[in-house]
Simulated assay, not measured.
Amino acid sequence: RMLVDSQDDMVVVGEAGDGGEALERLGVTSADVVLMDVRMPRLDGVETTRRLLATDDAPRVIVLTTFDLDEYAFAAIRAGASAFLLKDAAPPDLLGAIRAVRAGDAVVAPSTTRRLLDHFAALPDPAGPSTPDDRLALLTEREVEVLTLIARGLTNTEIAADLVVAET
């Protein structure tokens, strides 16, 4: 709070102790950028970010954490966060991130950026040639059909209905 309020171009418009309270306060107070902790009671920062960004005129969200864990970064980014930073970020870095996010840019902690790039680089090239997994050749036509439905995210009940079989 002190760091943000010390800036001529920034003002803290509210604080909350947990995700539920944050959503309540942001329902009646407008903000351009929200600093969101990953770990909070009642409703964690990732789910709070997801819910907040599903609203009209949602602010941009910077997710902060003490823990430099990939799962937090990936979850925050999937939830729509504009930035992922560690709480030990230097004050000029945090202030710069707030300004960058306010301007529409995205920011990721340098220690996390390398791992994100490595993760992205390891993904198959969607434009490249598709090389089927040799293990698929071992499956029957029906097994491939079931696997395809699983890959689409269907539940067991939905798969059974689609295949016109009993769920068991």
Rank of each mutant, 00 (worst) to 15 (best):
41 P>Y: 11
162 D>C: 12
121 A>V: 12
46 V>R: 06
29 T>H: 04
160 A>E: 03
21 E>S: 11
13 V>W: 05
60 R>I: 02
13 V>G: 04
45 G>T: 04
55 T>P: 09
77 I>D: 11
21 E>N: 09
104 G>P: 00
62 I>N: 01
166 A>G: 12
165 V>K: 05
131 T>L: 15
119 H>A: 15
30 S>L: 04
119 H>P: 02
63 V>Q: 03
70 D>S: 14
160 A>M: 00
83 A>T: 06
122 A>P: 07
90 A>C: 07
11 V>G: 07
102 R>K: 09
72 Y>P: 03
32 D>G: 11
109 A>W: 00
126 P>E: 10
105 D>R: 11
54 A>G: 14
52 L>N: 02
124 P>H: 02
22 A>Y: 00
70 D>T: 11
101 V>M: 01
152 R>V: 00
51 R>N: 10
163 L>H: 06
16 A>N: 00
87 K>A: 09
156 N>A: 13
33 V>E: 06
137 A>M: 07
156 N>D: 15
18 D>Y: 08
9 D>S: 08
138 L>Y: 01
74 F>I: 13
142 R>G: 03
108 V>S: 01
4 V>R: 00
120 F>M: 13
68 D>Y: 05
79 A>K: 02
149 L>T: 01
128 G>T: 06
132 P>M: 10
89 A>V: 12
136 L>H: 09
163 L>P: 04
98 I>L: 06
11 V>C: 09
149 L>N: 02
43 L>I: 14
107 V>M: 06
114 R>A: 15
73 A>W: 05
130 S>Y: 15
25 R>V: 13
157 T>P: 06
93 D>C: 03
158 E>F: 07
119 H>I: 09
84 F>K: 00
132 P>D: 11
10 M>C: 12
15 E>N: 10
94 L>E: 04
66 T>R: 07
70 D>Y: 14
159 I>N: 01
24 E>D: 15
130 S>P: 05
132 P>K: 07
137 A>H: 06
1 R>M: 15
151 A>C: 11
152 R>F: 06
42 R>F: 08
63 V>H: 00
94 L>V: 07
25 R>E: 14
8 D>S: 13
117 L>D: 08
14 G>C: 06
84 F>V: 12
62 I>A: 04
142 R>T: 12
162 D>S: 15
70 D>K: 09
120 F>D: 04
68 D>L: 10
94 L>Q: 02
118 D>R: 13
7 Q>Y: 09
4 V>A: 02
83 A>Q: 01
63 V>M: 10
99 R>V: 09
118 D>M: 13
122 A>E: 13
63 V>W: 05
152 R>A: 11
65 T>W: 03
106 A>T: 10
166 A>F: 05
38 V>A: 07
61 V>K: 04
38 V>Y: 00
99 R>G: 07
135 R>D: 13
80 G>C: 03
65 T>N: 08
133 D>N: 12
122 A>C: 10
40 M>D: 05
126 P>I: 03
156 N>M: 14
36 M>C: 03
